[in-house]
Computed example of a mutant assay.
Amino acid sequence: MSVGNTLKHLPLEAMHEEAGARFGAFAGWHMPLTYPAGVMKEHLHTREKAGLFDISHMQLFAVEGAQAATFLSRACPLDTAGLGEAKSKYTVLLNEEAGIIDDLIVTRLGDERFMVVANAGNAVKDEAHLNAIADGFEVTVRPLKRVFLALQGPEAEGVLIGAGLDLSDLTFMTAAEPRQNWFATRSGYTGEDGFEIALPPEEAPAFAEKILADERAQWIGLAARDSLRLEAGLCLHGQDINETTDPASAALLWAIPKRLREEGGFIGAEALRRIVSEGAEEKRVGLKPEGRQPVRSGAPLMNQNRETVGRVTSGGFGPSAGHPVAMGYVAKALAEAGTPLIAEVRGNSVPVHVHPLPFTPHRYHKG
């Protein structure tokens, strides 16, 4: 069975092939994992200059209608009334038990217009979930076909200006519609300053070529995207968060205003209030292994008495941090920074300790 028959393909796949990408499967897509430079150099290039990521596997939804804001406040623990025009907000889709169906970025484009960015592996499920909630609201949820590019790193703004797109007026988590059917936010998944730009597929090759004509920019694959986001302490849905984890345990309550936690009518509100009131039993934390051996997703975490007290959900080597980095869940009593633990890795005991997140400082452009 060929990969082409089972996986979705990016509109710009030919460009990635020409750039020498090594491909692999991710969330149902045929994705570029690395390029000839390799994951270490790609990671460091993004931190030092500008990395271009093809994230067209992500799904954008246009949410429009007279009750679009009310609808989104029901679907998510989101204060849509307080979300200003051209402002973006990180939020979550919850089930009735406050489990995280997906994490999203919601941007207000007008009084009755919003853009929602969802994760690739959850796009079909999210669309069905949103449409089920939309029944009874005056709103439409419309999936968009766009190429989605992320340009990340300290040189990102200058590279974009050189490519003919000046978004220097944007600050972190603000957005613009710079051209017809284009959508851009100053945000990303690396901890660096950067932009995410959605545009029609027919306009994307020429735009990407303009970016890559700048020697400061180069293609970056999924492997470095993962190490960058892990150093930045950012969750990957399906690993660090899923429908069995709630925002309190996942250390994501910062994304939900306190008033909404206490009074909100969003799906999962009652369950979340109960969890917050009783206290989450476990908590997502950063983990720093001693030595050079990374610990990977699925490794059990034990206390000094060799009792299992948690699990690793993401792990690898942090090229910028200079040491292995990981995240996972531990019993709440063990969530303090510096707490010593043991990770079991293929029969070996690797000492780790709880480490503050992020591992590398965020460098968002906040104006």
Rank of each mutant, 00 (worst) to 15 (best):
G28A: 12
N122T: 12
R179V: 02
H45D: 05
A250I: 01
N131D: 15
L230C: 10
L144K: 13
S320C: 13
R186N: 06
W182Y: 14
L260H: 01
G84S: 12
S349M: 13
N348I: 12
A213P: 06
A255K: 05
F359V: 06
G191K: 00
H362S: 05
I55G: 02
A248C: 13
T308M: 11
K49T: 09
M40Y: 07
D166N: 15
E215Y: 14
G279V: 06
V106A: 04
L212T: 07
L12D: 00
G121N: 12
S168A: 14
G20T: 09
P247K: 00
A333R: 15
G191T: 03
K87E: 09
G24V: 05
G4W: 14
E17Q: 15
I256Q: 02
V63C: 05
A156Y: 03
N303G: 08
F359S: 01
D166C: 12
G316S: 10
A321S: 14
R292A: 13
R261Q: 11
R346Q: 11
E344K: 07
N305A: 13
N303P: 06
M173V: 04
I342E: 00
A19Y: 08
H9N: 14
R142T: 15
G279W: 08
W219Y: 11
A208N: 07
K258N: 04
A132K: 12
A343Q: 04
A223D: 10
I100E: 00
F71N: 02
G221A: 08
T174V: 02
D103E: 10
T313L: 08
S187C: 13
N122D: 07
N305W: 09
V106P: 00
I55W: 05
N119S: 11
P358I: 08
L151Y: 01
C76K: 00
R146V: 06
E290G: 11
P200Y: 05
H57F: 11
E17I: 13
M327L: 08
V285A: 08
L33F: 12
T190V: 06
E177T: 11
A217L: 03
L83D: 07
G367Y: 12
M115Q: 07
E344H: 06
E112S: 13
L52C: 07
D126H: 05
E112H: 08
P289E: 08
S249I: 01
T313S: 14
R225Y: 09
S168T: 10
V92Y: 00
E97N: 00
V330L: 11
A66C: 12
P356K: 10
W254I: 10
M58K: 03
I133V: 15
R259Q: 13
L160I: 11
G38S: 08
G194F: 03
A184P: 00
R296I: 07
E263A: 10
L260V: 03
E290W: 09
V39A: 11
V352H: 01
K125Q: 09
I105A: 02
A232Q: 07
L287S: 03
W254A: 11
F148C: 15
N303T: 10
W29L: 07
G264D: 00
S88T: 08
T140S: 15
A120Y: 09
P77N: 00
H45C: 09
E262T: 03
I105N: 01
E202G: 12
G315N: 13
W219N: 03
Q180F: 09
T185M: 05
R146Y: 07
F61G: 00
E155G: 04
L167E: 04
P358C: 10
T174C: 04
T80Q: 04
K145A: 14
L94V: 01
P294S: 14
A98T: 00
V325G: 01
